[in-house]
Simulated assay, not measured.
Amino acid sequence: MAFRMPAEWAPHESVWIGFPSSTDAWGEPLHRAQLQIAAFANAVLASGDGEAVHVIAGSAEAAMIAKDLVDSGVHVEQQQIGDIWLRDTGCIIVKDGDLRIARHFGFNGWGDRFDYPGDKSIGYDLAIAAGFDVTKADWILEGGSIDVDGDGLAATTVDCLLNPNRNPSLDKEAIESRLRDDLGIERLLWLGDGLANDHTDGHIDNLARFVGANHILIPQGAGSDDPNEAVFADARKRAEAFGCRVSLMPSVGRFLQDGEAVPASYMNFYIGNAAIVVPIYGVRSDDAAIAVLASLFPDRKVVGVMADAVLTGGGSFHCSSQQVPT
């Protein structure tokens, strides 16, 4: 059988979204992060087109809060989720025709940085509850570290996938082989560094995203004050040399929280069946980013949702979600 990871724009049966639940993990921004994740879930639901929305809360108290914040059609479930980043802790559903199975990869807290109860088991638990057969992979892979075009091409970063804090015994060729076997990835575009101060060691879903077969979207730096100006330029150069069609997205530019430049990115958008939800930050480039996505996906409604509080946890809407393809 030839199982392959579908592109995100392929039809979804449902989506799992993690809900901020722990004051210990989130601190003062917890309530605003809950409001923003609820707004994300509501935006996916409001678009319609048959995509069920499941919000996963980590406690009974958080589940009650979630039910108060989300629309009535959103399913709220209580699970031991750990933190909310289901893109990395959830299973990846792969397909061979109409057959679907869940790939459950190893997870080590982004290079042993964090260890929340539930992070290593939530992906398996959700997939089993949804009725999937689950196959476990014997290596570390976070879903946010790869992006696919559904046609056998994927992109990743050297910064993350070759970091020795994940799979120190695996070299480039071994990782490419495992991606081929586990996700049906036949060609791999290796970009270089990820965004500055990204504690995931450079996840691709903050840097570059496929928007069509062999068509990749990359930010354009906002000038010399942009901490990722060189990173974006290098990514574009590598993608073009690889033979990809490249479109450009505005950069958020230098975005400070508590005096530190943080990896705010429009690239952490979620592609649903009928809507694209893009994180915005209350800066002047927000509208331009929405316009770019609207031009690339004319069949979907593009919705900008504030994500500054979610960003304090280290990610955004794409990071918090994992889709289930039909």
Rank of each mutant, 00 (worst) to 15 (best):
A2D: 15
A7L: 04
P11L: 03
V15G: 05
V15E: 01
W16I: 06
F19K: 12
D24F: 05
H31V: 13
H31S: 12
R32Y: 12
Q34H: 11
A38K: 09
V44M: 10
V44K: 06
V53L: 10
V55P: 02
V55R: 02
I56D: 02
G58Q: 08
A60F: 08
E61D: 15
A62L: 06
M64P: 07
I65Q: 11
K67R: 15
D68I: 05
D71G: 14
S72P: 05
Q78Y: 01
Q80M: 15
Q80R: 15
D83C: 12
I84F: 09
L86W: 00
R87Y: 01
R87L: 01
D88Q: 04
I92M: 13
I93H: 13
I93Q: 11
V94C: 05
L99E: 15
R100A: 15
I101T: 13
R103T: 05
G106Y: 13
G106H: 12
F107N: 06
N108E: 04
P117K: 09
K120W: 07
S121E: 14
G123A: 02
A127P: 14
A129R: 12
G131K: 05
D133P: 07
T135L: 08
T135K: 08
L141I: 02
E142G: 01
E142L: 01
S145F: 03
I146V: 15
D149Q: 10
D151R: 08
D151P: 01
D151W: 06
A154V: 00
A154D: 01
T156N: 02
D159M: 10
D159Y: 09
L161N: 12
N163V: 08
P164S: 09
N165E: 01
N165D: 05
N165A: 01
R166T: 10
R166C: 05
S169Y: 04
E173Y: 06
E173R: 12
I175A: 01
S177T: 14
S177Y: 06
R178E: 10
D181I: 11
L183M: 08
G184L: 03
I185M: 02
E186Y: 04
L195P: 05
N197L: 07
D198P: 14
H203V: 08
N206S: 10
R209E: 02
N214A: 15
G223V: 05
G223C: 07
S224R: 11
D226K: 03
P227S: 13
E229W: 04
F232P: 07
K237N: 13
K237G: 09
R238Y: 07
R238F: 04
R238N: 10
A239L: 11
E240S: 13
A241K: 13
G243R: 02
C244G: 09
S247T: 15
L248H: 09
L248T: 14
S251H: 03
Q257E: 11
D258H: 13
P263C: 08
A264E: 11
M267C: 14
M267P: 02
V277D: 00
V283R: 09
V283K: 08
A288K: 10
A289H: 14
I290Q: 13
I290Y: 04
A291H: 11
A291F: 04
F297G: 00
V302C: 03
A307Q: 01
A307K: 00
A307W: 00
F317I: 03
H318G: 06
C319I: 03
S320R: 04
S321Y: 00
Q322S: 14
